[in-house]
Design a protein around this nucleic acid. Structure first.
Lengths: 212, 212
DNA sequence: TAGATTGTTAATCGATTAACAATC
DNA sequence: TAGATTGTTAATCGATTAACAATC
C-alpha cells in the first residue's frame, strides 16, 4: 500500500479540526496548533501531510482554507457522495434526520427497512422503501455507500444485498463483524466497543448492594 | 504504559466476536477461527491475549465461555456501569432506546437536555432532566460515564460540566475534539470520519449533471 | 534581520509476524 | 500416537519522533 491506512485514518480528523477553524474565522494555523488541539505531535501532522504534497509555508504555517480544500480533494469529498441507510429503527431514523452530513461531503438519498409498518414512513424527507428493492434502487440512483442500522442478526444478509447492488463502502452500526468481498470497504461503529475501551482504564464499579 | 493502547482497543472486538459464538452455541474456538472472522492474524490474537495470562489449551484452543468471562473481567465490564446521556435529540433518544447496552456491561441511568421542550419527556424509560442538574444528579447516582450527543458548539461546555461532576469517561458523538483533564478518558464517534476513511479508497463520484 | 515553522532525514521506538517447542 | 494449537521468542516490519536545514 502506498499511503499507510493509519495515516488515511487521521486525515478526516485533521479535516474536521481545520473546518472548525475555518468556521470560527481563523485563516492560518500551524502543525503545532493543530497538534495541541488534537493531542497529536506536530511532527506527525507534518509527516502525514507530506505524503500528499507540500501545503504550508516555512515561518507561516498553513492557510486553513487551502488545506481544507486539499484534504477534501485527497479524501474525495469534493463532490457529494450519495448514501443509503438500511434500517429505519431509532438509529436509522436519527441518521436520516441528522443534518451533519450535507456540508461534509455526503447526502442521504434513500432509506430502507423490511418491516411493513415502517415502509412508507417519512424520515428526514425520505420515504422508507422496502429493503427487497435495494437491488433495484441503488443501481438506479448510483449509490455506492451505505450505512447499516439493522439488528446484528440481519447485518450480514443486508451487507450481501448491498454488495450485490454495487455498494463499495459500508458503515456498519450493527454490533457484529461482517464479511465482504475484497475491495469493499467496511467501517464499524459500536458504542459499546468504545465504552469498553474506556472502562479498561478505570476502576471497576462497586455493585450497589441496594439497586444491584 | 503496561499494556499497549492498541491491544486494549482490540479486546472489545474479541469479546464481541466471542459473545457471538457463545450466543450461537459454540463452546470452543481457536485463534485461527477468530482471526478468520475478524480479519486479524492468529498470531496477533494470541499475542494480545498473552499480555493478560494463558487462556487456551494446546491442541484444543479456547473455551468460549471462559474467554468471554476473562475478557469481561479484564475490560471491567463484569458488573454494570451506569451511564448518563447528554442530549435528547434524535441521537440521544436513539441511544436511550437502544437495547444493546444492558447485556454488554452498561446501563443507561439518566438523560439530560437543556431545551425546556425536551425536559420532562420520557425516552427508554428515562425522564429527560435539566442539563443544569448534571452536577447534582451524577454524583448522587455515582455515574462515571457519559455519552455526549449535543451540537458541536455545546460539546466542550458539556464535557467540562461532566468532568466537574466526576465523570471519568466520555463518549463524544459531537463532531468536534474536546479537551479534558489528564486521566479522563475520551472516545469519539463521528460517522462522517468513518465515511471519509472509506471514500479515500474509492473513485471520486462524478457529479450528476441533472441532480447536481 | 530575527523568529517561526515547514518538510524531511535518520534514529528510535513499538507492533506485527513467522516459527517452533511444548503439550493437549 | 498423530494432529492440532497454544504461548513465546526473535526477527521483521512499520510508525513515530527528534532534530535541523531551508526559507518564509
Amino acid at each position: 500500500m502506498e499511503i499507510p491506512d493509519i495515516v488515511v485514518g487521521r486525515l478526516p480528523i485533521y479535516l474536521r479540526a481545520l473546518s472548525h477553524l475555518e468556521s470560527i474565522g481563523q485563516t492560518v494555523t500551524s502543525s503545532h496548533e493543530m497538534g495541541n488541539a488534537l493531542g497529536i505531535s506536530s511532527a506527525q501532522i507534518r509527516k502525514d501531510l507530506s505524503h500528499f504534497g507540500e501545503f504550508g509555508k516555512q515561518g507561516t504555517g498553513y492557510q486553513v482554507k487551502y488545506l481544507v480544500d486539499q484534504l477534501r480533494r485527497i479524501l474525495k469529498v469534493g463532490a457529494d457522495w450519495d448514501i443509503a441507510i438500511v434500517g429505519a429503527g431509532d438509529l436509522g431514523r436519527a441518521l436520516a434526520n441528522y443534518n451533519g452530513f450535507a456540508d461534509r461531503g455526503f447526502r442521504i438519498r434513500a432509506i430502507f427497512d423490511s418491516d411493513p409498518r415502517r415502509i412508507g414512513q417519512t424520515h428526514g424527507g425520505h420515504v422508507v422503501q422496502d429493503a427487497r428493492d435495494i437491488g433495484r434502487v441503488l443501481p438506479e440512483l448510483g449509490i455506492r455507500l451505505a450505512m447499516v442500522a439493522v439488528p446484528a442478526a440481519a447485518a450480514q444478509l443486508v451487507a450481501d444485498h448491498l454488495v450485490a447492488a454495487g455498494v463499495q463502502g459500508i458503515l456498519n452500526y450493527a454490533p457484529i463483524n461482517i464479511l465482504v468481498p475484497e475491495g469493499v470497504q467496511v467501517q464499524y461503529i459500536d458504542p459499546v466497543v468504545h465504552l469498553q475501551r474506556m472502562t479498561f482504564y478505570l476502576e471497576a464499579p462497586t455493585p450497589n448492594p441496594v439497586t444491584g
